[in-house]
Simulated assay, not measured.
Amino acid sequence: MPLPGIPVPPDGPEPVLQAVFWDLDGTIVDTEPYWIQAEKDLVGEYGGSWTDEDALELVGQALDYSARRLQQAGVPLPVEGIIAALTEKVAARIRAQVPWRPGARELLEELAAANVPCAMVTMSTGPLARLVAGQLPAGTFRLLVTGEMVQRGKPHPDPYELAFDQLAAEVPGLSKARCAAVEDSLPGYTSAHAAGLAAVAVPHVIDLPPDRRRIQWDTLAGRTRRDLEELVTAWKGAAR
């Protein structure tokens, strides 16, 4: 879903970094605890139990996958009903307080000031994505791709493929070789990497399994556009 009011980058030499694709939950905002509590509350409403281990299995997964797991835990609602119930619980907490991840807003602001288009690629629903995007300055995101827009969610490449195709229609000459993706989970990182994007993992709730080929940062705090440019350059070099 393209968002209005975003300036098109000016003509000139091709930049090293043409665009950045962002995950939402756990990357821009620390909402994973909100989702975990929402899952526990919903399962508990129907007399079931839901552990932290159960919840951690769902981090980064598509919401329809999560809904089916909650059905197995005893929630007698259709998939759409479970997604709606979870989303409303999480949205209510976000309205009360937006739990920004360290460095995320600052990096988004720097990219916006430099006219680097950003897209949000999340398995959350459109209303939730728009709720968070609305807490940032107008123009921060060029478009949003949300869970209901794809048949196959993360870890499949479809969400990032769709986001790239939509952004490419807005930004002439957009190349995957000049784009970066920021993720916190293994499903998300796998999705972005499979779509052909230079991805960086910034783990939060769950540590990622060791992989010497993966570029990984401890935090976004202190990270700048230059770091993303170096990420893209390193990825292009490794791909040769």
Rank of each mutant, 00 (worst) to 15 (best):
L77V: 06
L77H: 07
L77S: 08
P78K: 00
P78V: 04
P78M: 03
E80K: 08
E80Y: 02
E80A: 14
E80V: 06
I82F: 03
I82C: 00
A85I: 02
A85E: 13
L86S: 00
L86N: 04
L86H: 02
L86T: 04
K89S: 14
A91P: 04
A91S: 14
A92D: 07
I94S: 03
I94Y: 14
I94C: 15
R95F: 04
A96H: 12
V98M: 09
P99G: 09
P99E: 04
W100L: 14
R101V: 02
G103L: 06
A104V: 10
A104G: 08
E106W: 01
E106N: 00
E106I: 02
L108S: 01
E109S: 14
E110R: 06
L111V: 02
A113V: 03
A113G: 10
A113I: 03
A113T: 11
A114N: 01
N115P: 01
V116F: 11
P117F: 12
P117R: 13
P117K: 12
P117G: 12
C118P: 01
A119G: 14
A119S: 14
M120S: 02
V121A: 09
T122S: 15
M123D: 07
G126W: 01
P127Y: 04
L128R: 15
A129L: 06
A129P: 05
A129V: 09
R130G: 09
V132F: 13
A133E: 14
G134Y: 07
G134W: 08
Q135H: 15
P137Y: 12
A138M: 10
F141I: 01
R142F: 01
L143H: 08
L143D: 00
L144D: 09
L144M: 03
T146S: 11
T146R: 03
V150T: 11
V150A: 03
Q151T: 13
G153A: 04
K154I: 05
P157A: 10
P157D: 02
P159F: 09
Y160K: 10
A163G: 13
F164Q: 07
L167S: 08
A168K: 12
A169D: 07
E170T: 03
V171Y: 12
V171S: 00
G173D: 12
L174N: 01
R178H: 15
C179K: 07
C179E: 08
C179M: 04
C179P: 05
A180C: 10
A180H: 07
A180F: 12
A181Y: 03
V182Q: 01
V182Y: 02
E183F: 12
E183G: 12
D184W: 03
L186G: 05
T190D: 00
S191M: 06
A192M: 09
A192W: 07
H193E: 13
A194Y: 01
A194W: 04
A194T: 08
A195Q: 10
A198H: 08
V202M: 09
H204R: 12
V205K: 05
D207E: 14
D207A: 15
D207S: 15
L208T: 09
P209S: 04
P210T: 13
D211M: 05
D211L: 10
R212T: 13
R213Y: 07
R214N: 03
R214D: 10
Q216N: 01
W217N: 09
W217L: 11
W217F: 11
D218Q: 13
D218H: 12
T219C: 03
T219R: 07
L220I: 06
